[in-house]
């Protein structure tokens, strides 16, 4: 019944993108250069800086490369992607704490993986549904990322550092062999 009724969702582009491809990982972060891809959301850069600080203390990373994505809603621009690929071994992306920026942060993580860089994406847990849907849409159902409690924007400096310390084991796990991050279904 109703097979003559046109399906308004049908079309040439409904199929999802390429199958997921995760980058090769090493067991340890020692001696690696860590890229930080921040968006311009309040506390995003501070959160990533605190992550880098802890990584330097606990994992003897070699260097940190900081890049900021000026449009929170757009995917990482090609020039920044190239720079990260050229200079970094792994990348931490964040913070996805709005509807459009959490979705684009997950896209950035998938893009970095496809370019050969292990990535850990940090999203606030209020946007889990959106981030999971993005991951599914881009052909990576089950893509893992780090969830931090909502909100992030209104935290003070100490609270941001505390959040970063709490998230650190998951971030390290995602960037190395062990992957205990949140699973998108």
């Amino acid at each position: 019944m109703f097979e003559k009724m046109i399906d308004p969702t049908a079309g040439p582009d409904v199929a999802a993108g390429d199958a997921p491809r995760l980058a090769e990982r090493t067991d340890r972060l020692d001696g690696l250069t860590v890229g930080l891809l921040a968006n311009t959301k309040q506390n995003a850069a501070a959160f990533l800086d605190a992550v880098a600080e802890s990584l330097a203390e606990e994992h003897a990373i070699a260097d940190v490369v900081r890049r900021t994505k000026l449009s929170i809603t757009d995917p990482v621009p090609p020039d920044i992607l190239t720079e990260l690929v050229d200079t970094c071994d792994v990348v931490v992306v964040g913070v996805g704490d709005c509807g459009s920026c959490s979705a684009s942060a997950v896209v950035d993580g998938i893009t970095l993986e496809a370019a050969g860089l292990p990535a850990a994406v940090i999203c606030s847990d209020a946007f889990q549904v959106s981030a999971d849907a993005m991951a599914g849409l881009r052909g990576s159902p089950g893509y893992r990322y780090v969830r931090t409690p909502h909100p992030v924007a209104s935290l003070d400096a100490d609270a941001v550092r505390e959040r970063a310390r709490t998230a650190l084991p998951e971030i390290v796990g995602l960037l190395t062999g062990a992957r205990p991050g949140a699973v998108a279904r």
């Binding site: 449009s71 809603t73 459009s100 920026c101 979705a103």
Partner: peptide, 10 residues
């Protein structure tokens, strides 16, 4: 904003 993530915005 439309070609970015505007439709998904909070």
């Amino acid at each position: 904003v439309v070609t970015g993530g505007g439709w998904q915005s909070t």
